[in-house]
Amino acid sequence: MEKCLEHFYKDNIRLIRMMGKRYGLSRESLLDAYSDAIIDFKEQVRKNQFQQKSKCSTYFYSIYNNKCIDILRKKTTYTITHEIPENLKDTSPDIVQMLTFTVERNFLDTLIARLSSGCKEILLDWNDGYSMEEIATRNNLLNAHVARSKRYACLQQLLAIAGRTNLVNDKGYKTH
C-alpha cells in the first residue's frame, strides 16, 4: 500500500506544478495539500466512496483541487470584497466542527502515544494491510507467528488504555 501510494505520489507531481501556476500557492502549502489529498484519496478508496464513475486521476485531481481552494480561501479571507466564485465557496467544516475534529485527533494521538514504540509500529503496519510475514520482517520479529501474537497483545494493550482512561461514553469517548 505504502509503495503504491508512493508511486502514485510521484506519478502525479505535474498536478503540484499545475496548481502552483493556477493558485500561486507556496511550495510548502502545495506539498502539504498534496499529501493530504493522497491520504483523503486512500481513505475514500478504502471506504468505497470512490465508485469509479470517473477516472482515478480525475477523482484525485478534484480532491487536490479542493484542498488547494481551501488553503487559498483561508489565505484570502480578509481580502475578498467581491462575490466569491461558485468553485471557491465555503463547503468545508465550520469552526466548531474544525475544533471538534482537532480535539478528536489530539485525543486519538494521546491514545496511541501511550503505546510502546514497538507496539505502535506493529499496529500501524497491520492497519496498512501488511501481511504477518511482512510485519515480522519490518519489525525484526522472529516469524509471522510471533508477529501475530505481538499484534494481538498490542491491540489488547491499546484496548486496555482506552478502557482505563475511562473516556468512553455514549458517543464513543469524552474529550476532557
Binding site: 501510494l5 506539498l31 499529501s35 500501524l124 492497519n127 484496548l159 473516556l167 468512553v168 469517548y173
Partner: peptide, 27 residues
C-alpha cells in the same frame, strides 16, 4: 466502543505516518 476507538486511533496514526513519509519524499 473501545475497540472502535482504538481502530480510529490506529487509522489516524497510520495516516499521520503516511503523511510524514510523503512529506519527506516531497522535500
Amino acid at each position: 466502543k473501545s475497540y472502535f476507538l482504538s481502530r480510529s486511533a490506529i487509522a489516524n496514526a497510520s495516516n499521520e505516518r503516511l503523511k510524514k513519509h510523503l512529506d519527506d519524499i516531497g522535500q
